[in-house]
Computed example of a mutant assay.
Amino acid sequence: MATKLPIIISTADGSSSSAAVAMKSESSLTPVQRLMSSCIGATVTALCVTPLDVVKTRIQAQQKESLMNNNNNQSSVRQSTTNTRPIGSAGGVGNGRQFGQTFKMFIKMSRTEGLTSLWSGLPPTLAMVIPGMGVYFTSYDLFRVHLNKQFGYINRYQPLWVPIVAGSVARTLAAVIISPLEMIKTKMQSQLFTYGELALALRHMIRVQGYRSLWTGITATILRDAPFSSIYWAVYETMKQHAFGSPVEPTVPVSFICGASAGTVAAIVTHPFDVVKTHRQIEMGSTSGGGASGVYRTSALLAHIYRETGARGVFTGITPRLMRVAPACAIMISTFELGKTYCRQYNDSKLT
């Protein structure tokens, strides 16, 4: 039997209104109002958490370089029968503790590259997250309301599968649209690229591999983002409506706690695909093409990383990602819900 989440709206005196009023409150929001709420939330979130995203990407880039060096060393061993250094020794992933420790990476980047390096790729990040989150959150909200109407769940209950399906479809749509911008952002964060160097790399990649290469890593991105979205919205809606008994218009603290918790759970489950995506996108514009990710499909690359570095390897960068995802989800959903609340109040004021 499907788990059902009650949809309730509390009136000013604390009593519960009818489901019809609840649906009217949801339907009163226009797509433009939803879009505005999500875009404002995306801007605030990007400015706050970009440094954590940069650190996560840099740590995963160090892991990729170590895997490439290890593969080259193993080839030399077969030719010269000389023992190679195991991963974890100096220069390997294990020695990347100076990079593997999140705060050490912050300090190192600030000292050696300047404080502004922590916001590397901010312009493409803003160019990506504003339309991306706009499409994502607006689509999710519209899909969710449509499914509730289509299957007759507006009378009282919203089953758990509704946020799962709506979240997955909305996130897949957004991922396809913004994948080229995310690749540019990842490349800029993994190394200190000027815009001129990045443009050259892009032209070289398109000339050699075609325009489809702009969607390099899209499979790993969807494998990461679609399940992430399904898990996130399932946990968020469950906590919001069950654990906190929150109405359709939750308070900011409720949204913040539910968003951070849902984001943490979803990030842990889907992080291995984030590692694979980063490995593939870092190779964008590479002339060598000899990286480990260049010769493996997503599942095979994940298995390769696991064989070389163990479970710790497939969760490389999990600490900075959690430090980024939890507050990002909390800030984004809180701003989004707050924006929708103001829009509902505005709509109601026009009717009175």
Rank of each mutant, 00 (worst) to 15 (best):
1 M>Q: 08
4 K>Q: 06
6 P>L: 00
9 I>Y: 06
13 D>H: 06
16 S>G: 12
22 A>F: 06
24 K>V: 12
31 P>S: 03
31 P>F: 00
34 R>H: 15
34 R>Q: 15
36 M>Y: 06
37 S>W: 01
39 C>G: 11
46 A>S: 12
46 A>F: 06
46 A>V: 10
51 P>V: 03
51 P>D: 11
52 L>R: 01
54 V>F: 05
58 R>F: 02
58 R>T: 03
59 I>Q: 15
59 I>F: 03
60 Q>G: 10
60 Q>T: 12
61 A>I: 05
61 A>E: 14
61 A>M: 13
63 Q>L: 13
64 K>W: 01
66 S>K: 03
74 Q>K: 14
75 S>Q: 12
77 V>W: 14
78 R>T: 15
78 R>Q: 15
81 T>H: 13
83 N>K: 03
90 A>N: 14
90 A>H: 12
91 G>V: 10
91 G>M: 14
92 G>A: 10
93 V>S: 15
98 Q>I: 10
98 Q>A: 13
100 G>M: 13
108 K>I: 05
112 T>W: 09
116 T>Y: 03
117 S>V: 01
119 W>L: 07
120 S>V: 01
121 G>M: 02
121 G>W: 00
123 P>I: 03
125 T>S: 12
126 L>K: 02
131 P>N: 03
133 M>G: 14
136 Y>W: 13
141 D>T: 02
143 F>Q: 02
145 V>Q: 07
148 N>Y: 04
149 K>E: 08
151 F>P: 14
151 F>E: 14
155 N>K: 11
156 R>P: 05
157 Y>L: 15
159 P>G: 14
161 W>P: 15
163 P>K: 00
163 P>C: 06
164 I>R: 00
165 V>H: 06
167 G>T: 04
170 A>Y: 01
170 A>D: 11
175 A>C: 10
176 V>A: 09
179 S>V: 04
181 L>I: 05
182 E>I: 09
187 K>T: 11
188 M>Y: 03
190 S>V: 00
190 S>C: 00
201 A>N: 14
211 Y>N: 10
213 S>W: 00
221 T>P: 07
224 R>V: 02
225 D>F: 03
226 A>F: 03
227 P>H: 03
229 S>M: 10
232 Y>R: 00
238 T>F: 01
239 M>C: 13
242 H>R: 13
249 E>L: 10
252 V>A: 14
253 P>G: 06
253 P>D: 15
254 V>A: 08
259 G>M: 04
267 A>S: 15
270 T>S: 14
270 T>Y: 04
270 T>P: 11
271 H>C: 05
272 P>I: 00
274 D>F: 00
275 V>C: 07
276 V>A: 12
276 V>S: 10
276 V>F: 09
277 K>I: 01
277 K>W: 03
280 R>Q: 06
283 E>K: 01
284 M>N: 08
285 G>E: 11
288 S>C: 13
290 G>P: 06
300 A>H: 12
300 A>D: 14
301 L>H: 04
302 L>D: 11
303 A>Y: 11
304 H>I: 05
304 H>L: 10
308 E>S: 12
308 E>R: 08
315 F>S: 14
321 R>C: 07
323 M>R: 03
326 A>G: 08
328 A>G: 15
328 A>T: 02
330 A>T: 02
331 I>A: 10
331 I>S: 11
333 I>T: 08
338 L>G: 11
342 Y>A: 07
347 N>V: 11
348 D>A: 07
349 S>Q: 09
